[in-house]
Design a protein around this nucleic acid. Structure first.
Lengths: 193, 193
DNA sequence: CGCGGGTTTGATGATGCTCAAGCCCGGTGG
DNA sequence: CCACCGGGCTTGAGCATCATCAAACCCGCG
């Protein structure tokens, strides 16, 4: 299976998982296709799946008091996306998760997550590391937001995720950076001079 | 022990721990006193302890390229403080942890943390929840920074942590909010009118 | 062909920063 | 006991960054 190969390679980045364990895991991951603009999760729902992206791209976003969207996560192929807080706590999610392109996913439900821990204990470490990484990413994003200008943040994003640019509309990039599309447009204009 | 009672009450907020388990845990927590302005952890060191504060107050901060401090955590009594990323990953910390008042702590080393997981498996859940909470807090702080004015963020902080104000110098509050002391001063001035 | 989402441009204004100075007050040493 | 220091807080003036609002543009697609 093409999709499960993808998954295995991703797991191997964090834990040393065997082919046998992989076979145990496979049944718990449900394939799903998601058309552009379709939602995996709505605000107010309890987030019930972790999604591993094998094709396409998704974003997670919240909506503030003024009705403005704020993109909190962007996920291309080989990345995971979910509202971990809602999923782990069982509380309603403050984030929607939506496909930006036609996408293919492997879904792991909260319930299957528990099963997997029993079958393959090594996965506990994997998901703890995933949570750690999500935490660090957010912490660094916060730090850069208060200590660096939007132009610098954009340049850093370019360096680390250059493929984002060719795939993701600038409005989402802007939102992810915490600025308006107009501001991002001006930043790009100034950079090319 | 006064200090261990404190700890137990804190654990009970998240997991249902028995007196017997409590006795198993106790030996792994090392009491420590820390004078005002003294550091528990320096930038560049690997963070080796999680600190539970039983008296006093601490802050965690990083220093950016321009040499400016940024307070990322504030911890009064009954709170935990550590650079979880450094502690769990073993990588050098980008944060210093320092006492703001003369303080008393219970320290749990990374090594003892592993021991505790074996002795009292329930503690795995406790620390997973602690990590989740740290993650959520950071996420919300990030969201409020890009969607709300500093004045609103300050008011929210007041409502949720009014005791902070009487104990913690405003320069640290300002830094925690992601603004300069001058800005915070003006915000406070405008609020009292 | 025209619609509409995405992007750009312009003008204006708010928010918060920087730099500089002064104030208040608790502690220290003469 | 007082003088003086210094850290923390305030105040002011000017400025940089970014938001807002409004308009136009570009271009793929039905």
């Amino acid at each position: 299976m093409e999709q499960l190969e993808f998954l295995r390679n991703n797991l191997l980045e964090k834990v040393n998982i065997s082919s046998e364990e992989m076979e145990l895991l496979a049944p718990y991951f449900i394939p799903k296709t998601l058309k552009r603009k379709k939602e995996l999760n709505r605000i107010g729902d309890v987030c019930k799946d972790i999604a591993f992206v094998t094709k396409g791209s998704l974003r997670a976003y919240s909506i503030d008091d003024k009705g403005t969207e704020h993109v909190s996560q962007l996920a291309l192929e080989n990345h995971w996306i979910a509202d971990l807080y809602s999923l782990l706590s069982g509380k309603p999610s403050e984030f929607a998760i939506e496909a930006m392109e036609d996408s293919e996913l492997l879904l792991l439900s909260a319930h299957n997550l528990d099963c997997i821990y029993l079958k393959v204990p090594l996965m506990e470490r994997f998901f703890r590391k995933l949570l750690e990484k999500a935490y660090i990413t957010t912490l660094q994003r916060f730090n850069s937001t208060i200590s660096e200008t939007a132009a610098i943040r954009y340049k850093n994003l370019l360096q680390n995720n250059s493929d984002l640019l060719h795939r993701v509309p600038l409005i989402y990039i802007a939102s992810y950076l915490g600025i308006t599309p107009e501001s991002l447009s001006r930043i790009r204009k100034n950079m090319s001079l």
